[in-house]
Design a protein around this nucleic acid. Sequence first.
DNA 1: AATCAAGCAATTATCGATAATTCCTCAATT
DNA 2: AATTGAGGAATTATCGATAATTGCTTGATT
Lengths: 233, 233
Amino acid sequence: MATQPRSATLTAHVHEQLRAEILSNVYAPGSPLRLAALSKHYGTSMSVIREALVRLAEQHLVVLLPNQGFRVAEISREDLIDLTELRIMLEGLALRRSIERGDMEWEAKVVSTHHILERAELHREGEPGTTAEWSAAHAAFHDALGVACGSPRLISMVRGLRDSSELYRQLSGTGEAEVKRDIPAEHRELMELARDRRPDEAVEALGRHFQRTTDLLLQAVLADEAGPAPAMY
Amino acid sequence: MATQPRSATLTAHVHEQLRAEILSNVYAPGSPLRLAALSKHYGTSMSVIREALVRLAEQHLVVLLPNQGFRVAEISREDLIDLTELRIMLEGLALRRSIERGDMEWEAKVVSTHHILERAELHREGEPGTTAEWSAAHAAFHDALGVACGSPRLISMVRGLRDSSELYRQLSGTGEAEVKRDIPAEHRELMELARDRRPDEAVEALGRHFQRTTDLLLQAVLADEAGPAPAMY
DNA sequence: AATCAAGCAATTATCGATAATTCCTCAATT
DNA sequence: AATTGAGGAATTATCGATAATTGCTTGATT
């Protein structure tokens, strides 16, 4: 398990790893992240764990309660709806601007990341859940769509929202509900509309893409959770 | 100078203080923030300084270069323009939604924070630069405008952008250029349009308010900085 | 003079230990 | 039975020291 730190700094490495673990649902939403346990797990002192967790807390992937430690961020219907609305708007804007301003290098990146994603999708046929490779390829493709928007801040915000969304997506695995959906086709459509520089249609397609995912997620994973709280009364 | 920590935790207290110092331009943009010096300044160990700085780094107010420490975030024409564009959009959206969804308590908050701001503006007549009280009142008023939008994430993003903007604003002091501008009147208009629930006009006014500030800032403070770099060639 | 490398000083990153706080248990009281 | 409060265990927050890294200075080399 001894990991060789490729990162410039130990903390950066742990931060990346921990983010990946959280996004792939190794720790359930709301569950505590104990310093001692993680310290042992990663073979580093509590200081570097703590610093990594502080960073994740600022990114809203974990929550810090003073003197009570860190927990994985909670999930909820309302939050997913909020998240999706903002994502449609901001990631849509980033896409629109990329289409308007992106150069040929950008086009190439869209095409190439889509190609990798398409391959991952073919390989995945009938697989149980979301593969780590597919998730990475998926994130890379969506990132490419907006990366030429020209605004570092917008890119950063979009990435943050995307990470938060991933928390929900992983929850469903490859949900049964998704059988009715041709996700590869949606991605191909997005790639073509971006490549062919059709801003309105592309933004529209992106919005539908997100909304569909959210709707399925809402009915599949978060179907209940309407009352004030789960149980214990 | 011994500060009594009202915060739940020492780090939180230092984080707040440091944020305030950076936003009020105690340290110039780009200047290094040395752990030992700050540690001495605040009378705490380097660990809590470091944690506070890590948080600020995630909020884009400072920058961390691995093994080279922390610096106050740099400023630039392009960044200010980017920032303003995003602020107009996001803070405008928050305002629109607050007008649509805010209850009477929200209205009251808008009116009351505006009242405090107006008082601070009157008191400030002829003062040299931006007062700390005025800055606080100003931030509180703008915060109130968007706080009822119903999206915690949007509120958080808007606050982050507002903090970054403050970095620029403080740079100008009460610039000479502002004499031609009736800022109190702009604020009053905003308050009235929000209070009277006129979304389109309010959002429009907010956009103009930001754009004016930025335009003046651009010509007053960041007039040069067109070439590749200041000097040293 | 310019370049380069070795050594040194300053600074950051990491560690392990201590202090402070919270949470749980359980007995005492009502 | 429910509530309260005092202990004690578990956990977080803070500290000071050590290790690692960077960057500067200086002296050797061309």
